[in-house]
Simulated assay, not measured.
Amino acid sequence: MSRYKSLLLLLSIISVSCNQKEKKQQHETYVYNNGRDTISVALFLTDKTFEGSYRENGPGGFKVTGDISGEVKGDTLLGSLYYTPYKGRDKRRKAIALLKKNNDYIIGKGNSYIYMGVPYFDAETVTFKGQVLKASE
């Protein structure tokens, strides 16, 4: 009987230690709006990674939707956007960079490449002078 108690104690210790290692996750939504152009990004952030959804709408029924994911590096989110282009059938993947400034994110622009299926920016060409995503409540 003591063998079963020892096993039960061991399993409960493992269970408690696994639950303590859960990552803190926060959910945030950001919106850019300029007339009829709108970009909406919903983010789920942990200490080292992020994932979420991306939606861009424009005049004439222009719509791009997709999923974003990547790594958190300080105040910058670097990753990829897996999206369906406007009037497209096949999904595509491209690099995405977001810089946190105050409570907002600035969308990065630059030369984007894909190597072995992984999109990335040429580090020397990335600028953060694009659209500003404002925190929404």
Rank of each mutant, 00 (worst) to 15 (best):
D67G: 01
V72W: 08
I96L: 14
S53Y: 03
D75N: 14
L78G: 01
L98A: 08
K91S: 14
R55I: 13
G61S: 00
G60Q: 06
E71Y: 10
I106D: 01
S80P: 00
T84M: 11
D104T: 09
L98T: 10
G79Y: 03
L78F: 14
D67I: 04
L98G: 05
A95G: 12
N102H: 06
Y105E: 08
N102G: 04
K87I: 06
V64F: 03
G61Q: 00
S53C: 02
R89N: 14
E56D: 08
G58N: 02
G66M: 00
G58Q: 02
T84Y: 06
G66N: 01
L81H: 09
K87Q: 14
E51A: 13
E71A: 12
R55E: 14
K101V: 09
T65N: 10
G70T: 04
D90V: 15
D75V: 08
D90N: 15
L78T: 09
G58A: 03
G60R: 01
R93P: 01
F50C: 03
I106R: 03
K91D: 09
S69V: 01
S69N: 06
Y86F: 15
D104C: 01
G88E: 15
S53Q: 10
D104H: 07
G66V: 02
T65A: 07
E51F: 13
G74D: 07
N103G: 04
Y54Q: 04
I68P: 05
N57S: 07
L99H: 04
K73I: 09
G60S: 04
F50R: 07
E71I: 11
R92M: 11
R89A: 14
K91P: 13
G66W: 03
T76L: 00
I96C: 13
S80I: 07
E56A: 15
Y86A: 10
G70H: 01
P59L: 02
L99E: 11
T65D: 10
T84R: 14
V64I: 15
A95W: 10
K100Q: 09
K94S: 15
K100N: 05
S80H: 11
Y86E: 09
F50K: 05
G74C: 08
V72H: 05
G74E: 03
P85Y: 12
S80K: 12
K63E: 13
Y54H: 04
L99G: 02
G74V: 10
F50A: 04
A95S: 14
